[in-house]
Each structure stands twice: as structure tokens, then as C-alpha cells.
Design a protein around this nucleic acid. Structure first.
Lengths: 336, 336
DNA sequence: CTGTTAGCGCGTTCAG
DNA sequence: CTGAACGCGCTAACAG
């Protein structure tokens, strides 16, 4: 398989320029002879040709590449988002470079630096810290940068997030309509903006009912993890002298921990417990309990992110440089 | 932020060569004056410098990049594998380029072509077809290519897989020891080599017990999907006039479908049903049933794949060009 | 210790 | 319709 245009030119006897015009589909414009074109096209059909992206990038100062930084790919939400983004990229002949930060700001910084150094044309970041910015600002390069999933507010970049507030509000409303039991909110990491919004929705729904949401908020300022879920449920069971009749988790990880703890401490998970959680998973189908969950619309999020990323490339004057895009979520009800 | 070495050279007044030596840490070797070095280092500390990978790649014909093609990133197994591989790459200053084929051979081919065209230094593929090869062979480029997860046998490339046979064997043995009920195997896509091995293990364990494994094999030659799981469980329930006392699924997707179907058709999932499945998921914790599962060792798989990928780079003469590496799996038991 | 040079493959521009 | 020439930023080798 010939690698360079030059090789093809020598092999076919035409000039480099001629071959290039054929390859780039500009044979019309430059009035290349049909027979000439056919000859070259045939040669390529047989022997193949693969463009050297490194050389192209060097020359054009553009890599046809989009960077994506996510906290954790094992998280199905980010995996789906990546898949959606990848599809967009493929349609535009872009390659998506995904790097995981493992919720570590040091790794996140390295990831951003790496991708920028590799010359990505755009960069989407689901930040795990509020301070990524410093690095990025220095890169005065006119790169398109978009934040998503977590809105740390003071961002200088366009941001795309799910409507976590509305999700928390509606799920809590539904929950309170469904049960008279006290509803507890197990809050994983209250420094995450997305989780703060979820709590805000919960609290507002409680207040609508005349309840004091804060009373039912279990918050250990722990991390967003299974372990934190266990700890919070442990504290709750101890306080109530038994499992709660209804509870809501700030994420699937927390839910996992909470259920583990109930099982460990009580022996079984009573099917009358009303469960609510942010983020959805097909396996929730198998719980015999009533289950509420909020599913984020990854496809829509990905579309928005992608738009923001390529808009500048497409040359649109985006006055909305640091606007925030909010995408609706979906409430899913099981067994009720 | 200056982007080129040349810029720094002019700004500091030293020559390009000198600056380069400092940047590459060869100041010792070439006896650059300490003061000179300090000056340059300071300048870089203040103004920064980011190497242009495109130019570097063009010159060295090496991209410091590894490609990864997987069927589906939403599958937690592949997500974890990617994460592990990414960690290895980071340690070696390589960037991992992951592309998903969505179990589509056309997309898989495109992915491989794309990555090869982008000049990856190595390529790991979890193939979703037996015929990827043709393309790859043409690329006579001396790239390191490794297949994993699915061993289509006639592969010309080194291959790394989990010990699916042993997993099937042990899980089935355990299952038969646990129950006297007939054990059924719901087999998703029997064209996948990995699943064939799982079936083989199942059959052998049955035969050890004097059972005819084939009698309990539900195989619709469907795909490896939730829908297929539903269909197979549907057929099984109809045949048995009720749910099976014990069953094993070839993958989590099939299990999902099977459980959905039991729930839909029977109304509930009897907690006495013994469930076994390939691939593990934390959410299996929440089933009240006895659950057996096989967990693949993603970290070990990733290590092996990475070794195979970089060995050739490291210049080792790998006589074992097309050898197959088999990695042990782990049997996980819940509620029994 | 420092400077010079050539060329990786591509896209562009200009001169036939 | 075709050819020639330049330069993107970096590396390597050699010449001081």
C-alpha cells in the first residue's frame, strides 16, 4: 500500500499535483482529463492510499480530532455520552480522543494538557474540579472548549448540563405522592454542582409539601462512592432503628452502597421500601421494589456539546461564549 | 505560550540545538553550561512550551499512540479494559485512541482503517467478526496488532482471551452441586468464539454428571442481546410450563432479557431460582436469589495486551507472533 | 558547548 | 491540464 502521493505519482507517471487533484476530488475544477483521472483512481482502488495525517496536521495546523475528558468511563452515563459523541465525530470525519481522569484533578490536568498538546481541534470536559481553568486559559490557542455535566459556574467556557434541579424536583414530588413515609436523601458528594442541584430540587419539593427538606438530608460530605452510600445508610438505619421506608440517592454508586448496607445490616431488602435514584440502569428492573430513577439524555447532551464544539469551527460568531445549556431529564417509574 | 523551539531559541538568544538539548534533558550529555540551562529552563517555566506532536510524528514516523477497537463501550467489561489499558499507556507517555464498532463489522473496518491511517504505533482489537484481517494484512506496515476477547482462531495475530471454557466448567459444576433442578443454558450468539467456549465448559460439566448438556441448551442462534434473552426465556417457560429452577446466561445482556421475561410472564422472579451468568456486575448484589457469575480479569487482560503491543516496539524478537494467551477468570458466588 | 542542514508528506501558490 | 517550489516544526547527523 503506497503511503505518499509522490509514490502514486511516480507509479502512474503523472505529476504530484495531478494526482493530488484527483485524490481531493478537484479533478473537475482543474479540468483533469477523464482518462487521466480514471487511471489514477484505478491505481488507488487497487493499491490503496492512506493520507498522512501527521503531515496534514502540521501543514494545516488542524488535527481533525476532538478531545474528551471524563471522570470515569466505567460510569455508564459517560460511556453512553462518549458513544454518542463518537457518532457525531465519525459523521464529520473527526476522531474522538477520550481520556479518563478517574476523578483525580491531577490526572485531569494531565489529560487536558496532553490533549491540547496533541492539537485537538476541540475539547469537551466533564470536570472533576473547579480549577481546571488555569491551564486552559494559558493555552490561548483559539480552541473550542466546552464543559459539561458539571457546572462550576465561574466557567469561562460554554457549558452543557442536565436539568438536575428539575429532575430532583419531579422525582421527589412523585415520591412524596407515593408514600407517607419520611423520605431521606443520601447525598454523595455535595461539592459537585450537579448533586447540589439535585438536592435543591429535593428540598424544594419537600417545602412544597410543608416538609423541611433539610431534616431528611443525610450528608456526610463523603465522596460519590459505594462506600459513602454504605456509611450514610448505616447512619440512617442506626438513627431510625431500622431501614427507611423511602430514600433517594444522589447517584447509582450511592444507591449500590445503600442497598448493600441494608442487606448487610437488616438481612434483606424489604420490597416495600420505595427507592429513588439519580441515573438509571437497566438492572434496576430486577428489584421487586418500587423504583424511581432519573435518566439523563445522553444523546441530547452529546449533540449540544458537539454543536458548541464545532460551531466556532464552522465560523459562526458565537456571542454566547460562556452560556449554559440545560437539557431536560426523564423520570422513570418501575413497579408503580 | 510559545509553541516552537525556534521561538524559544530566538527569545533566549541561544541556538535551536542548545534549547533542544535542554528540553530533551540531554544538557548533561552535551555539556550545556549550567547557567545556560537555567536560563532556558526558566524561560520555559514562565512561558511554557508545548511540543508539536504532528511534526514529531511526521519526522519519526511514530505517533506515540495506541489504537483500541471494541464492540461496545457501554459494556462495562470493555470500559474497564479500556481504563486499564489507558493506565498502561499513560505510564509510557502513549495516548490511547479508542473507537467503538457497535458490533458492526462495517464500522469495525472503518475504525481499524481510521486508526491505521492515523498512524497508531499499535492496535488492539476485540473483533466482532472473523474477517477483519484482510484489511490489516494489506497494511504491511510493521505495526503491532493484537486481538483480544474473541479468538477467531485463524488469526495471524497474537491473541489474548479469558479462559471462558474453564469459567463455564467451574460455574456449571458449582451450579450442579447446588441444585437438583435441571439447569438450562441460554446461549446468546453461538457464533462468538468466547461464547462457544462457555458452552463447551457447560457441556463438559454436564457430562461429568452424566447429564446430556445439549438437552439443556437453549439456542436460538439469536444475537447477544436483551431481546434474545427474552425470546429464549419465553421459549423455555413455554416448554416447562413455568420458570426454570436454575439457568445460566451467556452474558449479562441475555440475563437481563431472561429476567425481564420471567417478570413479565410470571409476574415475579422467584427467589429460589438459581441464577448463573457470565460477566459480573455489582448490581447482581441486589437480587435475593443465589447468583453465580464469572468475572473476567480486565486488569490482567489489559496487561497482556499491552505487553504484546509494546514488546515489538521494545525490540524483543517475538517468535510467538500468533500465540494465544489465556487469562484465568474468577467465579463469584452470592447468597450461597 | 553551539550552529547548520536536510527532509518527513502534505497543501498551496505560481508558472508554465 | 501539469510541474516546481516552499514551509509547517521537529529530529538527527555533522561541522564547527
Amino acid at each position: 500500500m503506497p503511503k505518499t502521493v509522490d509514490e502514486i505519482a511516480r507509479a502512474t507517471g503523472f505529476s504530484i499535483t495531478t494526482v493530488r487533484f484527483v485524490i481531493n476530488g478537484q479533478s473537475e475544477k482543474h479540468r483533469i482529463g477523464a482518462s487521466t483521472r480514471k487511471l489514477i483512481e484505478d491505481y488507488i482502488a487497487i493499491h490503496g492510499y492512506s493520507l498522512n495525517h501527521a503531515a496534514r496536521s502540521l501543514k494545516l495546523n488542524r488535527s481533525d480530532t476532538i478531545g474528551l475528558v471524563v471522570p470515569d468511563l466505567a460510569n455508564a452515563f459517560f460511556a453512553r455520552l462518549m458513544a454518542a459523541l463518537e457518532t457525531h465525530c465519525r459523521k464529520r470525519n473527526l476522531l474522538l480522543l477520550t481520556v479518563s481522569s478517574h476523578e483525580d484533578s491531577e490526572l485531569e490536568n494531565r489529560a487536558v494538557t496532553t490533549l491540547l498538546a496533541r492539537g485537538v481541534d476541540g475539547l469537551a470536559i466533564a470536570p472533576c474540579q473547579a480549577t481546571t481553568l488555569s491551564q486552559l486559559i494559558k493555552s490561548r490557542a483559539r480552541k473550542a472548549i466546552v464543559m459539561f455535566d458539571r457546572d462550576y459556574g465561574h466557567s469561562l467556557f460554554p457549558t452543557v448540563v442536565s436539568d438536575n434541579f428539575q429532575g430532583g424536583l419531579e422525582m421527589t414530588r412523585r415520591m412524596l405522592r407515593e408514600t407517607d413515609a419520611a423520605c431521606y436523601f443520601l447525598c454523595g458528594d455535595s461539592t459537585l454542582p450537579s448533586i447540589q442541584e439535585r438536592v435543591r430540587g429535593f428540598s424544594m419539593a419537600c417545602e412544597e409539601k410543608g416538609l423541611r427538606g433539610g431534616d431528611h438530608l443525610i450528608r456526610l460530605d463523603a465522596e460519590n462512592s459505594t462506600v459513602a452510600g454504605r456509611k450514610m445508610m448505616h447512619a440512617l438505619i442506626d438513627a431510625l432503628q431500622g431501614p427507611p421506608g423511602a430514600f433517594m440517592c444522589s447517584s447509582l454508586l450511592v444507591l449500590e452502597g445503600a442497598l448493600q448496607q441494608i442487606k448487610a445490616q437488616i438481612g434483606r431488602i424489604d420490597r416495600d421500601i420505595l427507592i429513588a435514584t439519580f441515573d438509571d440502569h437497566t438492572m434496576l428492573d430486577f428489584l421487586p421494589n418500587r423504583v424511581l430513577s432519573i435518566r439523563q439524555n445522553e444523546a441530547a447532551l452529546a449533540s449540544r456539546v458537539f454543536e458548541r464544539l464545532v460551531e466556532p469551527v464552522s465560523g459562526g460568531k458565537n456571542a454566547s461564549a460562556s452560556s449554559t445549556d440545560v437539557v431536560p431529564v426523564e423520570l422513570i417509574c418501575r413497579n408503580l
